[in-house]
Write a protein that binds this DNA or RNA. Structure first.
Length: 279
DNA sequence: CGCCTACCCTGCTCGC
DNA sequence: TGCGAGCAGGGTAGGC
């Protein structure tokens, strides 16, 4: 995480800062980690999209003769950004600045304390080097996310939480919103092979949770994680029912929320509302 | 092929 | 007060 709501909030906020600007130079000291960034230099940002948790900065074709470093390919490009766990954009250089996007109208800084973030420049749609992006499931808030498809896939799925986190049945769900969606649909995180009625509830919960979280500007955690570049915090953390609520009473039944580790992830659920069924 | 696990990385919290 | 251990986890490589 940041997950879809935090990434979408970031997208909306950096759009006016970058669209229409020329990336004059991209500065960082980890060429093995931030790939092909020199290819973006001299190009105009024409738009910023998002796919799951990836930001996709569209870069205009270069005027070939103008920039020799891009002589090998002058068509449009995409600059991918994944925020990882702690990535975000800032308007000032900081201790954790990893990548600086110099533009013709000032710089924008990519900060990432824990260095799980990714930056790469690729040809549009060329995601072979990013298997998760390549195999990304439908956007949860789009018409491409269809209940019937989801129900069918869920019938043969393994443990539902890791399945959601795989980005295959639906994109953009991370640890917070997986726990929230499962709480809402009363499913145990380790439940396998969902019945159609269960899968329909989960489908509705994912849509509802994601829509509400986007509208709230995402979740900003107690330590300030996922705060936006302008210092604004999301508000959805105030409506978490499961995530980081362990030790407190379930908002539905009053039984204490538990925390377990499932597939290496902290996992929060209500042991009374979310019962594992043998299948 | 698909599932599962280990690992990456570093700031912060906690206990002694 | 200082310090080391433990924890946070998305995506990917690699094993089975």
């Amino acid at each position: 995480m940041p997950e879809l709501p935090e990434v979408e909030t970031t997208r909306r906020k950096i759009e006016p800062l970058l669209v229409g600007r020329v990336l004059t130079r991209i500065e960082h000291d980890a060429p093995h980690k931030y790939l092909g960034t020199h290819r973006a230099e001299g190009r105009t940002v024409t738009g910023i999209g998002r796919r799951g948790k990836y930001l996709l900065l569209q870069l205009a074709a270069s005027e070939a003769a103008e920039d020799e470093t891009n002589a090998e390919y002058s068509g449009p490009l995409e600059l991918l950004v994944h925020l990882g766990m702690t990535g975000g954009f800032r308007l000032e250089h900081g201790k954790h600045t990893r990548v600086t996007l110099h533009t013709d109208e000032g710089a924008v800084y990519f900060n990432d304390a824990r260095k799980f973030g990714k930056v790469a420049v690729v040809r549009p749609g060329e995601y072979a080097a990013f298997p998760t992006l390549h195999g990304m499931g439908p956007e949860p808030l789009s018409d491409d996310f269809r209940e019937a498809d989801f129900v069918k896939l869920a019938a043969s799925a393994g443990a539902v939480k890791p399945w959601l986190l795989s980005q295959k049945p639906v994109s953009g769900v991370g640890n917070i919103y997986a726990d929230e969606s499962l709480w809402m649909s009363r499913l145990h995180p380790a439940q396998t092979r969902l019945r159609p009625a269960e899968a329909r509830k989960l489908y509705a919960a994912v849509r509802e949770v994601m829509a509400a979280a986007v509208a709230a500007g995402g979740s900003t955690l107690g330590d300030g994680t996922y705060q936006q570049h302008d210092g604004e915090a999301g508000l959805f953390q105030l409506r978490h029912h499961a995530y980081a609520r362990n030790g407190t009473p379930c908002d539905r039944c009053g039984v204490t929320i538990e925390k377990i580790v499932l597939a290496q992830r902290g996992t929060h659920f209500c042991p009374h509302c979310q019962v594992l069924k043998a299948r």
